[in-house]
Amino acid sequence: MRDTKESRLLLVLLVVVAFALITVDIRGGENSPLDRPRQAAQSAFGPVENAVAGAVDPVGNAMDAVKHSGDRNGTISRLERENAALKQQLGSKDITRNRAAELDRMLGTAGAGRYTIKGAQVIAIGAAQGFSWTVTIDAGSDDGVARDMTVINGDGLVGRVTTVGASTSTVLLANDPDFTVGTRLEKSMELGFATGQGNRPMRVQLLNGKANVHDGDRLVTFGSEAGKPFVAGVPVGRIVGIDPSGGNLTKTVQVQPFVSFTRLDIVGVVVVGPRTDPRDSVLPPRPTPPATARPRNTAKPGGTPSGPPGGTPSGTTPPADAVPDYNTTLGNGSTPTNSSGG
């Protein structure tokens, strides 16, 4: 359209009409005469508007995603780092709890045997100086550790110190084939010598070929002069097999060590041994057999009435083979123990 006088007049006229329609629509409110035309226009052009919006929105979203992709990648990276840190923190707490429990058991063992120990941590494993079963600990001469000192943990005998540096030491484990320690059998005090056999139970030769031994009997260290290389009373293991004697002067038994040598972490080096032999006091108490409940004495039809529920009828005595109550406390405050089974 050319820019003529007629076109300018038409434009002014259209603007005046538009303002007039807007004024009428506003003053009419809900009763506006333009309401119905507006609804008709909305019905006609609404689908077209939605279609256009549906076609244009993905492009807009894609442009927005490109615009903010750097921020989102940074957020994802930050969340991944925080997640890894939380996992590491949770793992560290589990390790700390496990080490605290190990340290607590070891201090209990040292207290029962009156051992003065230097705590240490296993920092390396593997062959060293020709030994096949050794570990390296983070304590050395600067910590008071010396050669031929006994090494224990909360379960019992770990080994002995063989090589000492300023801040580290090498420990020969008790399951090494070159490891030998004097032992004493619990209660009977029978003496013997235990030798490591790697992943198999230790081999113990008892000096008395007629010694009365049973599976489950436990052994402790006999001890050495001046407590080197072994202090007395450290738990060694329990008997899991008895070899045929074959008329030999000695008796050989297989002993499963109390210590798990493949799971060592916190250990203690005995720097000062006990003044007196603790004998069996370091061994944990044997499990108390549960007391067997006595059967109720019920009266039969036409028979003699029974006594109180769970009790003994009047005028009768308990059976001779009644099981004693191991949970009864004596007058001196101690609890009787089962002495059978060695």
Rank of each mutant, 00 (worst) to 15 (best):
F179G: 05
A293S: 13
P58V: 14
G156H: 02
I239C: 07
G29H: 09
D94I: 13
K187M: 15
A85P: 02
T162L: 03
V213L: 08
L283D: 15
T163C: 06
T109L: 15
L173R: 03
V48I: 12
L330A: 13
G182H: 04
N31A: 12
T276A: 12
S314T: 12
I125D: 01
D35R: 14
E82Y: 07
A299E: 01
M149F: 03
P319A: 09
T276D: 13
E80F: 10
F258V: 05
G159L: 01
A299W: 00
M63N: 10
D64R: 12
V253H: 03
S306Y: 00
A41E: 09
K87F: 08
H68M: 08
P319T: 07
K300A: 01
L206W: 06
D280L: 06
F45Q: 07
I152A: 01
Q121G: 12
G113N: 08
G341M: 05
V56I: 11
V59G: 12
G216K: 12
A120Y: 04
D143S: 07
L9W: 08
Q39Y: 14
L264Y: 05
S141H: 10
R27P: 04
I26W: 09
D94T: 13
K210S: 15
D25W: 04
R296T: 08
R105P: 00
G196R: 00
Q39C: 03
